[in-house]
Nucleic acid binder design. Structure first.
Lengths: 131, 131
DNA sequence: CTACTAGTTCAAGTTAACTTTAAGTCAAGG
DNA sequence: CCTTGACTTAAAGTTAACTTGAACTAGTAG
């Protein structure tokens, strides 16, 4: 497979694939002329990377999960603790969401006059979603 | 109040406060010499900004919520739709979390041999937490 | 009067994860 | 043989939300 086929099948732009290669996250299996050639297994690898990104791992953290030989070597402790982290984030976001729903419905003339909103303000020091 | 008192009470560094002022998110009420002077109400305003950040609004979006006179003018529709967004994010993250918990416990020799993990991979195209 | 402290400005630097751009290369079709 | 199109590289640019640095100033303590 050449890069554009991988791009199409994975949904990632070619520039991202080159970037991932530069970062050591993926490897091409050789070249045809200048062009990179990828094995089909690249798609599974990319899915794994995408999964990691969505679970909140940074690219560097993900890179650390692969052995030098390219095998994924995922530490179960890391998964556990990332899941815990995610759980914390979920709790904060849930509180936020509920507060926002309340504020959206609340009939108080100004949000500052609503006790629920004020409580929300006090508790607002927690985790962010960022997208 | 001078800037360091606001910093202390709000928990935000002075550099952030200057940055917020530059962005139009807050205003000092005057100067004593060179030094900015802030009214006590700045703290409520900062709490509101922090809340907005934590709910996933960008600083620009937050800036738009204040009228030129400085009054908060929060559109209930915006709150509602941000809450909906947050809710979507929560759902994705919850699926992620559960998948990670499973993968952390799963006895399959490689994660790729676990059907639950593979299902997780397929569904991994969704929202990210980013912290 | 002088030094010190806490503030000030403006510009540049930081971080992550990419994207864009410019200039070059190669294989294939006509 | 020459053009075309898909690919290549390396370096620079992007974005958000800040932080840091350098050079400067004003009120205050001694």
């Amino acid at each position: 497979m050449d890069i554009s086929e991988v791009a199409k099948k994975s949904g990632l732009p070619a520039s991202t694939l080159r970037y991932y290669e530069e970062k050591g996250l993926i490897r091409s299996i050789g070249r045809q002329g200048l062009k990179r050639v990828f094995p089909p297994s690249i798609l599974e690898r990319l899915a794994l990377i995408t999964l990691g990104r969505n679970a909140g791992f940074s690219l560097d953290e993900i890179a650390d999960m692969f052995t030098p030989e390219g095998k994924a070597e995922i530490d179960r402790m890391k998964l556990q603790s990332k899941a815990d982290e995610l759980n914390e984030t979920i709790n904060h976001l849930t509180a936020m969401r509920d507060g926002l729903y309340h504020a959206a419905k609340c009939p108080a003339p100004s949000h500052f006059e609503c006790p629920t909103f004020k409580k929300l303000l006090k508790r607002a020091e927690k985790a962010r979603p960022n997208k």
